[in-house]
Design a protein around this nucleic acid. Structure first.
Lengths: 303, 303
DNA sequence: TGCGTGTATAACCTTCTGGCATGGATGTGG
DNA sequence: CCACATCCATGCCAGAAGGTTATACACGCA
């Protein structure tokens, strides 16, 4: 009786959403594909998991039983996966470092150099993560340690140390009325369309839309992108504006886009993060120390 | 990162056998198929799990890590599967009963009738198991309770009550020199070719070859079968002889085959078995009581 | 040199999965 | 009362994946 973790993920999504249509959306597959997969899972087990109705899909008792156990199964698999990868990188003397585009920026060079001095036999494998994964691969076990920006979903399950903070600016298309101003109040941007991160990034998306600083007004979404390049294009083409760390003005300068300081939004925090299981990995800890020693002050307190 | 339990099973088989060729045999797939699957698993994880050599496949450190965790993952899945199916059958008021061909024989009718009286609202779903599964579906969660013969592999993980015992006889082709004898000593059969169960049935196969009563002499295998019909044909066609419970003489009588009593082999035990998790399932316990009350004596002690 | 024991590759077939378009059932609002 | 929105199910097609057989390649050994 062989099952794919994919089937379990699909099943859980339907169980949680209570409807094929919404679950399909969340999973980025078409609704007919989900219909077929769920039916196949039921056939495989020989058990009806849902009762169908016009209002959606409701779990049967048996479905409830499976839905209760599936999350632990998936988590156990993820855990085994992480540990396997960690063993591999340790055996090969490779430290896998994930980073978000424009996370630590110029500090990165210094950190790597310092780490190379401290661990001469080790190689550093830098991996840039897509924006859809604000943990930069840490959640999947793709990397041992990551340079990230706070806050992000799942942050509580990881160990985090803040390295420094940086003001958030706004990126505007060149011809925008506000583009000539030296400084902009955030409330002036409330009604602007924003270029946003995909919905599945949750708290991350909200943070860069600054929903907390809008006094309850919903943001307008002009476009959704998940890569730096798409993001820049969307802004340059006038689909919307976007908040970005100050350093983006240097690292993502491009004709057609201007960056301006914004008041009234909290600064962005750059941090180094690792998994609890790497707490006792001396190489990871060495890297963390190199981060702390090669970035400007406010990195005393854990976040 | 989606994985199939099949991939984990394949991986474990190769890890345990230390060679693709032998593992492929055990898994009943071709060696090239296994080669591809293992490579795919490695690509999926981005980790080398084995070092290849002419002498076989040796686990890497990372492979060792995964091999240590995989059995628990598979067991957890099997457990969830069993519980889900059990919930389903309980909700539908169906008791799924597995049985081996010729397990309880004539007693079966009485047991079912008694159970129907005790649990009027319930339906009994009888499922005959293939000989390749001496647990009659209990191990996979296909059934809630099973009528089996002892001993079988995995018996210790289940709850078992012996119902009665039955002498083992021998089934011979009609023209066989011993076919005219009233009674046969087992040592007279030591050099006969036997019709055996498939190798993967382990202790079950050994029991019906009576390897324990051969004083260390290896049995001769004349044919391997996994269905009653094949088994009867193999014997009738003279590929070998086979031990069988006395009742087979009634239930599997057929021209070309004679059954004769054998001395020097222990009797076969017929038992009812259930999983530890069904220990508190009152319906299963009712069925067990019906078994005990509708079979001849020696069912006082748990086996 | 030929054989046995390993793994890898090639060519081919079948099954599975996903996407799109569409159908059927059932409420809901103008 | 009809048009529309919201569900899930079905049919059809393309591409990917798993399986099989035949064969290649590497090596130790008689």
């Amino acid at each position: 009786m062989d099952v794919d973790t994919r089937l379990l993920r699909y099943f859980l999504a339907v169980a949680q959403e209570g409807a094929l249509t919404r679950a399909a959306e969340r999973l980025h597959v078409s609704q007919p594909a989900l219909t077929k997969q769920i039916r196949q899972l039921e056939n495989l087990l020989g058990v009806r998991l849902f009762v169908r109705s016009r209002t959606g899909m409701a779990l049967t008792e048996a479905g409830r039983t499976l839905a209760d156990r599936a999350p632990a199964l998936l988590a156990a698999w993820e855990q085994a996966l992480r540990e396997t990868r960690e063993t591999a990188s340790r055996a090969a003397r490779v430290l896998r470092v994930g980073f978000l585009a424009s996370a630590a920026n110029e500090a990165t060079q210094r950190i790597i150099a310092a780490f190379s001095l401290r661990r001469p036999g080790w190689r550093v494998d830098m991996r840039q993560a897509a924006w859809t994964d604000p943990t930069a691969g840490l959640a999947d076990g793709e990397v041992d340690v990551a340079l990230v920006r706070l806050p992000f979903p799942g942050q509580d399950a990881l160990r985090v140390r803040v390295l420094f903070t940086e003001p958030r600016w706004v990126a505007l298309p060149e011809g925008h009325p506000l583009a000539t101003r030296d400084q902009i109040r955030f409330d002036e941007l409330w009604d602007e369309p924003f270029v946003a991160a995909p919905a599945e990034t949750g708290a991350w998306r909200d943070y860069w839309l600054a929903t907390g600083e809008r006094r309850g007004r919903a943001p307008r979404i002009g476009a959704v992108t998940d890569q730096p390049d798409d993001w820049l294009n969307a802004i340059a083409n006038g689909y919307g504006v976007a908040l970005a760390p100050e350093s983006a003005a240097r690292f993502y300068a491009r004709p057609g886009i201007v960056y301006r300081p914004v008041t009234g939004v909290s600064p962005s925090q750059v941090a180094v993060a690792w998994t609890p299981s790497a707490q006792n990995n001396p190489v990871v800890q060495d890297f963390v120390h190199c981060c702390l020693e090669n970035t400007p002050p406010p990195h005393d307190q854990p976040a």
